[in-house]
């Protein structure tokens, strides 16, 4: 069962970056929740989730329990300028939103695909094993529909943020 505070943070981030128009009953919405949850954990703070590496990128079984709660909370957080998530989560939320807003500006907008690329590339750089020597090509090998230019662009953003290492 979902931790309400964490669900609230995820809902607020989805709303803040403008992905709250995704149909909450769709598979796409579930992908958004998973990717935001992962980015929150990697960029914001450790919220105790465990992620595996799947063809659609990072996935946490625990977050399955959050889909419904996040969907219910989304319309409620939409018009809230500030929400108190509690001391630990406040900083975590602010860090993640700042990171994502910068990313949105950098790639010129956000959609499901660009969010999936961002989360997947972070995972390729930091969590999968054996660690790939070329994260861009590793991701392109998995997701043939992506363009190399876009993945490299996201990769440069992550190098800049010290999340991915410079290519060898």
């Amino acid at each position: 069962m979902a931790n309400k505070q964490l669900a609230l943070v995820i809902a607020k981030i989805i709303s803040d970056i403008g992905l709250d128009n995704v149909d909450v009953g769709s598979f796409d919405f579930r992908i958004v929740v998973q990717k935001i949850g992962y980015i929150l954990q990697k960029v914001g703070c450790d919220v105790g989730l465990r992620f595996g590496w799947y063809s659609l990128g990072p996935y946490s079984r625990t977050l399955q329990n959050y889909y419904n709660t996040v969907a219910v909370l989304l319309p409620r957080v939409k018009h809230c300028d500030s929400i108190d998530f509690g001391t630990d989560l406040n900083a975590c939320y602010e860090k993640t939103v700042a990171f994502l807003k910068e990313y949105v500006k950098y790639v010129g907008g956000v959609d499901l695909k660009s969010l999936e690329v961002l989360a997947s590339l972070i995972m390729v750089c930091q969590d999968i094993y054996p660690i790939p020597t070329d994260p861009v090509n590793e991701l392109l090998r998995r997701k043939e529909r992506l363009t190399k230019d876009f993945v490299e662009k996201v990769f440069r953003f992550l190098i800049d943020k010290n999340i991915c290492p410079q290519k060898q």
């Binding site: 595996g52 590496w53 799947y54 063809s55 969590d127 999968i128 094993y129 054996p130 790939p132 998995r142």
Partner: peptide, 22 residues
């Protein structure tokens, strides 16, 4: 042994293997 752990934790570089196990 780290590869075995990675498969068990679903973090192995091949998503297919992670799916087979979980």
């Amino acid at each position: 042994y780290r590869e075995v752990i990675a498969v068990l934790e679903g973090r192995y570089k091949e998503p297919l293997y992670n799916q087979l196990l979980s």
